[in-house]
Design a protein around this nucleic acid. Structure first.
Lengths: 208, 208, 208, 208
DNA sequence: TGTTAACCGAGACGGTACGTCCAGTCTTTCT
DNA sequence: AGAAAGACTGGACGTACCGTCTCGGTTAACA
């Protein structure tokens, strides 16, 4: 979040409680107001903190919101449901549920929009949110390989490229369905999507 | 754009040139400044128009930008390239090129973000942009059916659902690749993506 | 106050009522809070006016206060009391009373302090306040000359220099007595001061 | 660093050098920035001292500036120039020169302005600056009496009142001339002023 | 062919939020 | 216990836009 390299040894240390309170207040404000009506002054007030304290730690609204929202994405898990199809369905449903929370979808899209003009912000999004979730793809793939559902991939570069592709397809489809088409990513849709995806990856339809 | 039902029978009619100038100026401002730094006062100045004139025609920044950007999406075409795989690759590349234009990506994401809190805006996006592009899916499907690449679908509801799914997968994947992963949707990626998609839809890999 | 030369012919004209309300509110705030605790935001609120309106008309606190206070100095008069001594005593007492009003003394000194670093402000003070009051000296002198109490002065430059000197002595003494020495400029003090001044100017003590 | 022999047995003693450095830095900042742009943080930095140290010794900006400026006024002297007129001219010129120094005029006026709302500050100004300079009047008067230029005054209360009046007239006139009228108190003006003052006090014009 | 109503430009209006700066206090470590 | 460093709360600053509201001045359809 902040640089740990520069170790200021003197002076009053920054309040760790303030950080937590600010991120908490940011999420609360996102829920109530949405991205565009969220103001840093209001966040500061909610957190019981002066505006300057907030600006000392984050460069602006975008950076703050990325940090506030990032932690929510770490909740995603990949419980072993016995088959690749079931695993995919499970994680996609979790992801859809996450995007339906009022603080995530609007914030994520807005920040992504800003990031098209702001390279450091894009980098922050990538490291704080995106790359962290690729673990789900890698893990699911490993599990399916162990089960014999997928052939092992020896070339690591091909494996990485495939993982990226899967990630973009899965995350993109869910986001688009939820936000742009504005239709629910419910169980029925998830099942249909999983079937297409699995068939596309393995050439064989999932066995129910 | 505006209601034509109420027919003002007297008085000076609105300048048609102003509309075009404003939309043009909006796109120019988007290119230069991006969504978040675009101001309506600036757009008005660029268009050589009073702010009042602008507000008389659009409710706000979001609505204006949707209209300004919508027309760009109508440029997408589906030239007959002889096979379903080639058709898909062609349109996906067009879409990727469109998202790489500086005025589209940032504007689209920002407006989508706003729309999560603004039902009329969501509706406007859907009618002005999203639904208009589903024609590409429907047309491509019909062409592939005629070629015998896809079996005919008798149930119109199933057809619609499948079209929606394809649309979300295609559009979502390209958007996510371009904006979130921030990697180019180049020919190599498009070929890999098309292969997965086609296999997922037909159970058979595309024949080169 | 503002330039009358540039006559903007288009656009909504500035509200004349706003000007009056702002100056009125400024004086009220000076009475309650004094110079240093007066804030432009508070003045705007009191005047029922937006902060921007205030900044559109005045460059800052200093300029506003000069304008707000200047009008008070125009209340000074020189009633004919029959003799030069009585006239001087009368106007000095008025001046002392004016400086005892809570909105004047603190504001005037603060603005003068600022003006030592701000030439345009100094000019504004001079034209809005100082020079306007020299009329009292000139008028009193003319009246005394007509009465035969003072010899006529033919050289206008000498007359001007003498008027300036008298003005500095009178205004300076009263201000210093009131603000720096912080003693009241009461009738007794004024009488003693007038006696010294008159003797200094004419060589003859005032006749009671 | 070694403690000196006189070091108290407990606690670190206050640095005497810090006091001098702070006052020095205050004067330097006044010269560069003027009263209104002088900040205590900046003074502390210039003095190589922590803000805490500064606040431990002075209550605020006003008190600090009074102390920083007071010492300059002690430079005023009353060298014996042989006649009352010459003595007055000498001290008035000194005073005018002092007020022309950039750190004095602005600071003095600002502090006086504040003092109209701050009784302790007024008291501090009086004891630190004003009353200390009345010695000049008293001394000059005694010298003139010894020379026979002024009659001896037996009643001490009358003497005090007269001294106060002279002080207000002299200081006030010079200050007003310099700061408000913003004209130089040069030799010509001082001579004219002295002539009026002396005639006012003695009934006889000064003998050149 | 003149009315006339809706349009147009310009720009001031009341607001809201911004991001910065400074005052004055507090907390930490070092001397 | 005092000092340096620097984070803290709180509040005003002056700016930028927002979306609305007068103004004076067109302009095209109707009478």
């Amino acid at each position: 979040m902040q640089s740990r390299a520069t170790t200021p040894r003197t002076g009053r240390p920054r309040s760790a409680a303030a950080d937590a309170a600010i991120l908490q207040a940011t999420r609360a404000a996102l829920v109530e107001l949405g991205w565009s009506k969220l103001t840093l002054g209001d966040v500061a007030t909610r957190a019981g903190v002066a505006k300057t304290t907030l600006y000392r730690r984050w460069a602006g609204k975008n950076e703050l919101v990325v940090d506030a929202v990032a932690v929510l994405f770490d909740e995603l898990e990949l419980p072993d449901r016995g088959s690749l199809a079931a695993d995919i369905e499970g994680v996609v449903l979790q992801f859809a549920a996450l995007l339906n929370r009022p603080e995530t979808a609007t914030a994520l899209m807005a920040v992504v929009a800003e990031s098209t003009r702001d390279e450091p912000l894009r980098e922050r999004i990538r490291t704080s949110i995106v790359d962290r979730q690729k673990r789900l793809v890698v893990e699911g793939r490993a599990r399916a390989t162990a089960r014999g559902e997928l052939p092992p991939e020896s070339d690591p570069e091909v494996a990485a490229r495939t993982a990226d592709l899967i990630f973009d397809v899965v995350a993109g489809a869910v986001v688009h369905r939820t936000l742009v088409s504005a239709e629910p990513a419910d169980e029925e849709w998830v099942r249909a999507f999983t079937q297409v995806l699995l068939l596309g990856l393995t050439g064989t339809p999932p066995t129910p």
